[in-house]
């Protein structure tokens, strides 16, 4: 698996949200994507997942250009994502939520197999007993887990998580952490956006730092921590 982001620019009107971002994800890496507010992190994930088309530059998956494809094609090709705000299908049961990606991906598949797989994943997320509940009756944390479960049903090669730890209590943080490491060991690449420095520095193997729509650092956490440009970006922000 190789995800290649090549010189991506994105302009909204006069605003340059992304200004020449390039990086490559090779194999099951665990990448943290950080940067001050408004640096373009969510915008970048929206470009990768096809919500926005880059004004210049392109995204390639395994050598094939995916930027310009609609989001559902990109999802089918193996890029799964969550959103900053949980977006479970509220008036559908947990099980139905889980079936959506599986059935979208395999139109000819047998429903029974998907149901079994869904129960298996729900057990892994310790929410199998909620399978027949409506998603809207779940707590915020449970909805977050449900989104992760949906992602596993989609079975993508690259998983992009937008702020998975934001507003989550410690117990759930552990579950999500465990989810990420376990799934990562199964051979999936992760790109995780987080404001939580401590978590992201410990969790990720590689850090990308965005500032003003540009990648200002790319490397192992220890190295990025010492990077003067990164320190300036963050300290500069604190000075405000």
């Amino acid at each position: 698996m190789e995800l290649d982001v090549r010189d991506v620019h994105l302009h909204f009107g006069g605003i340059r949200a992304l200004n020449g971002v390039s990086f490559t994800v090779r194999g099951p890496e665990l990448i943290g994507l950080i940067g001050p507010n408004g640096a373009g992190k969510t915008t970048l994930t929206n470009v990768i997942s096809g919500v926005y088309k880059p004004s210049k530059g392109a995204v390639y998956l395994n050598g094939e250009r995916i930027s310009g494809l609609p989001p559902y094609h990109i999802a089918r090709r193996g890029i799964g994502r969550t959103f900053q705000v949980t977006r479970a299908f509220r008036r559908m049961t947990v099980l139905e939520n889980m079936l959506v990606p599986a059935m979208a991906l395999h139109p000819a598949g047998r429903r029974q197999e998907f149901v079994e797989r869904a129960h298996e994943i729900l057990r892994f997320l310790t929410m199998d007993h909620l399978a027949l509940e409506y998603a809207r009756s779940l707590s915020g944390g449970q909805q977050k887990l449900l989104e992760l479960g949906r992602l596993l049903m989609l079975d993508p090669d690259v998983i992009i998580l937008d702020e998975p730890f934001a507003g989550v209590h410690p117990k759930l943080r552990e579950t999500i952490w465990e989810f990420i490491t376990t799934v990562h060991q199964q051979g999936k690449a992760f790109i995780i956006i987080s404001h939580d420095m401590e978590t992201i520095f410990t969790l990720s193997q590689r850090l990308l730092v965005l500032n003003f729509g540009q990648l200002i650092a790319d490397g192992p956490p220890e190295q990025v921590k010492e990077d003067p440009a990164v320190i300036e970006a963050y300290l500069g922000k604190e000075d405000e």
Binding site: G50, R87, R150
Partner: peptide, 19 residues
């Protein structure tokens, strides 16, 4: 299933591969 997922959240449905 897809109809309802679109009703609930079109963008999320697309991210789940729904055409």
């Amino acid at each position: 299933l897809f109809f309802r997922s679109i009703r609930e959240d079109e963008e999320a449905a697309a991210a789940m591969g729904v055409h």
